[in-house]
Design a protein around this nucleic acid. Structure first.
Length: 542
RNA sequence: GGCCCCAUCGUCUAGGCAGGCCUAGGACACCGGGUUUUCAACCCGGCAACAGGGGUUCGAAUCCCCUUGGGGCUACCA
């Protein structure tokens, strides 16, 4: 690619960055990094109703966590600012006026209700709705009149007649008949530009050369191309419409999925008090009703609180959900990159720099891909193994802090040791779950009833545990090696496998049958606490 | 309903544009076995696909058409 590549990611600040957005950002970023070009972050906040005040910061945090940095955008000034569309109003106005003056755009005064009616009529006739351009375009005087009558004033682009061909980098030539596209609104009645308009103006002004985005934008592209040309912006950017990521439950992976899962869970539980639930979510009755009806989606914290109360596992959709589930960014990025793209080589697991090196925009896949969590876990496992320890440590610390784990008390030295003894962990959550026992009080161990049944109540488990206790108490040193030697010889003495000796001990100190290797676990817990926990266990289950 | 996109193992995909090198390759999942102090990890082996129908051609997973299926868009949302 000879020219200077400029790509951008242009999210609308409606909440956390979700997987689909992350993928779009990633491919644009990958192309820029691969070609030595520039990657711009632009915030498309032209819809006052949808924007959330904290969303931009959330998106920024999520991108940074993934390791996707931008050359220009929020917090990184550059020559093309401002990077918030809400602060670029005069620019859009100027171009809208240009089109108006040239007769390539015109004013309209219909209300949403009126348009909705027309749309219904079209549907009833089994036709697509196309706005009918008036024979005589309204004048400025008409605008004044409409305003005084309290009518909404919007501006529509006068779509030229003919066929528009989109030369898509992944789909080839796709043609559209402009008669079916119709005149679309470019300036809303609140004075803000619509997406198609703002996007074109900004892409042109910011010198964007390549637009990689989801297939859901394919239908917008002829509109944007027509606008681009009417505005006299010259050479079009190259478009690449990626396949869409499909959720395991069906359609396009969407933020709405989490609320939906919750809603279903609520419907499946007629026994629970809805008022109590609304309380848990800290939302009022109206909001809660709306939510159940499938409309008003309450905030993320409300959804999470209610899900937690019901014990429902929500599918991870947002980047932050994966972070909270113990995934590491290196794995996420690697996995996401392979959704709708492939290197053509057999190797799939690779660090970021290799991803950049092998990125090739022409190798994007045409067909939609399903988000397969099983494969993500496999990638995460491999990346946890591969990543330099220092980096893994940083991820672990951030994770522990975010989920409020008691393991967060551990210092770096200890954490590194825990990482080491949890070799083969699939997620950071695995490490946390396995090592948690070290950080809870001796009398707060939660015993898994199944574990008690299986290893303590059977095969003289309790009796063996007592013997282990005596031997532990009698040891000179208390190193992993000594502990191992002792347990092995004990097993030998009784002519049983090590498991018969180790499992009762494991249950006694952790309450469960799962822990890091037993020798490390005991040594880390220390003799005093180990003995205490054994005593507690013996007393409790004798 | 209208417009548009897509179609290889359960899933992600290689191969398709330059048709024979494909008895269709890899990865994940799954199944079986091994290793083992638990879980996980690890090692070995196995199962498994060109949606269907017409063409074109000596020859089609690869090119064309139709059907079916999936997906997207259809807003004064992006």
């Amino acid at each position: 690619m000879p020219e200077n590549v400029v790509t951008r990611f242009a999210p609308s600040p409606t909440g956390y960055l979700h997987i689909g957005g992350a993928r779009t950002a990633l491919f644009n970023w990958l192309l820029a990094r691969k070609t030595g070009g520039k990657f711009i972050l632009r915030i498309e906040d032209t819809d006052l109703k949808r924007n959330t005040p904290t969303a931009t910061q959330q998106v920024i945090n999520d991108l940074r966590w993934l390791g996707i940095n931008w050359d220009e955008g929020p917090e990184i000034d550059g020559p093309n600012g401002p990077y918030f569309q809400s602060r670029r109003r005069e620019i859009y106005d100027k171009y809208a006026k240009q089109l108006l003056d040239q007769g390539r755009a015109y004013y309209c005064f219909e209300t949403s209700q009126e348009l909705e009616k027309l749309r219904k009529q079209a549907e009833a006739q089994k036709k697509g709705f196309v706005y009918q351009r008036p024979a005589v375009l309204p004048t400025e005087a008409d605008v004044e009149k409409a305003k005084s009558e309290g009518k909404p004033v919007t501006v529509r682009f006068a779509m030229p007649d003919g066929t528009i061909v989109v030369n898509d980098l992944v789909r080839g030539a796709v043609s559209f008949n402009t008669a079916e596209l119709g005149d679309f609104i470019i300036i809303k009645s609140d004075g803000f530009p619509t997406y198609n308009f703002a996007c074109v103006v900004d892409d042109a002004l910011m010198g964007v050369t390549h637009v990689i985005r989801g297939q859901e934008h394919l239908m917008n592209t002829p509109c944007q191309q027509a606008l681009w040309q009417a505005l006299g912006f010259g050479e079009l950017p190259k478009y690449a419409h990626m396949s869409v990521t499909i959720s395991e439950s069906g359609g396009k992976l969407s933020k709405r999925e989490r609320p939906q899962v919750l809603r279903k869970a609520i419907e499946a539980r007629p026994d629970i008090y809805l008022e109590k639930l609304a309380d848990v979510g800290k939302i009022n009755k109206e909001q809660f009703k709306g939510f159940l009806a499938g409309e008003n989606v309450p905030d993320v914290p409300a959804v999470e609180a209610m899900a937690k109360y019901l014990g429902v596992e929500l599918p991870e959709i947002n980047v932050i959900d994966f972070f909270k589930s113990g995934y590491i960014p290196e794995a996420m990025v690697n996995f996401i990159a392979l959704l709708g793209w492939s290197t053509g080589e057999k190797k799939e697991i690779m660090p970021l720099d290799e991803l950049i090196a092998s990125f090739d925009i022409t190798r994007l896949t045409k067909s939609n891909s399903l988000f397969d969590r099983g494969k993500l876990i496999a990638f995460n496992t491999e990346h946890i193994r591969m990543l330099p320890r220092e980096k893994l440590l940083a991820h672990l610390k951030a994770y522990l802090k975010a989920v409020g784990s008691p393991v967060a008390q551990a210092d770096d030295q200890l954490l590194l040791r825990l990482i080491k003894i949890c070799e083969g962990a699939r997620t950071l959550a695995d490490i946390e779950h396995k090592c948690r026992f070290l950080f809870v009080a001796d009398d707060h161990i939660e015993y898994d009833p199944k574990a008690i049944q299986k290893v303590l109540m059977k095969d003289n488990g309790l009796a063996m545990l007592k013997k282990v206790r005596d031997n532990l108490a009698a040891m000179q040193e208390f190193t992993e090696q000594e502990i191992e030697d002792m347990l092995r010889s004990l097993a030998n003495q009784h002519n049983v496998g090590l498991g018969k000796v180790a499992q009762p001990l494991r249950v006694a100190i952790t309450g469960s049958t799962v822990s890091p290797p037993i020798f490390d676990s005991v040594q880390l817990l220390g003799r005093e606490q180990t003995l205490k926990r054994i005593d507690n266990t013996v007393r409790k289950f004798s």
